[in-house]
Amino acid sequence: MGEQKFVLKLQNVHRQLGKFKIHDISFALEPGYIMGLVGRNGAGKSTLIKLILGVYSMDGGEIEINGISMVKEEKSVKEQMGYVLEEKLFSDGMSLIENARQYGRYYPNFKEDNFRKYCEQLELNPLRKAGKLSKGEYLKFSLAFALSYNPTLLVLDEPTGNFDAEARKKIIKMLREFVADGQRSVLYTTHLIEELDEIADYITYIKQGEIIYSVDKETLTDQYRLIKGRKSLLARMPGEGVIHVEENDYGISALVRYDKEREYPVDAEIYRPTLEDILYAQMAKEEAHV
């Protein structure tokens, strides 16, 4: 049996940035999948993205893109990566097409026709100046540029937060098409966790610079149950497995770690949670402990 291929592989990546530390992070992303990187603000998502993109150097560990080391072959690794970040990276004074030509030179697979095609899909005028784009349009432009050189890994940091519902749908569709050939992958962070249910195949949860888990969506949702019922249910809930309880006027809704052996109260309604339920509960729990 041949060795398993990964588009992205991190092994014991660590980095100290002032008082903040990224601790021995390891995870891998197979080709053809979309991974959502989630965590509260300040958890280290953007730092990790910058480490992956080679903007921050590592104190130790290894980052590989398609088996090529970022440290040893930064140039060829970067040729294979597309990125959409919140920061403004392009030259404001140049038009979109001028920017694309200027920076496309560094990517051997860049094709101007591709860029124009994606601009059309995203309803962007390639002759407009980059400095005059709104935040949402700027992200669309970054995405059009990133797709135009056909990378194998697309890294997106909060890509859809500034889009309206229609644009968000369109971009999600484009990302699905991007991974459809089974050769390419997407890693992205988002504030909108309900979006992950729709698109992510894998979830990597980061907390204070540490990976808490990195699993596929099915495995994750299988590990929990959402229990709903009257408030009196609260007293009969299994103690140690409860992640988060939400109370309202009508009753309670609790996320619990699922245990097949355990008996749950007969009057409780038990559901398989969505990804949103799980992540929301975990973040709320985290927030309560801060």
Partner: peptide
């Protein structure tokens, strides 16, 4: 101001050797 002569951050991301 007119030409947007700021050093574009893009250079840190583009595939280049140091």
């Amino acid at each position: 101001g007119i030409a947007g002569n700021e050093l574009p951050a893009m250079l840190y991301f583009c595939p280049m050797t140091k």
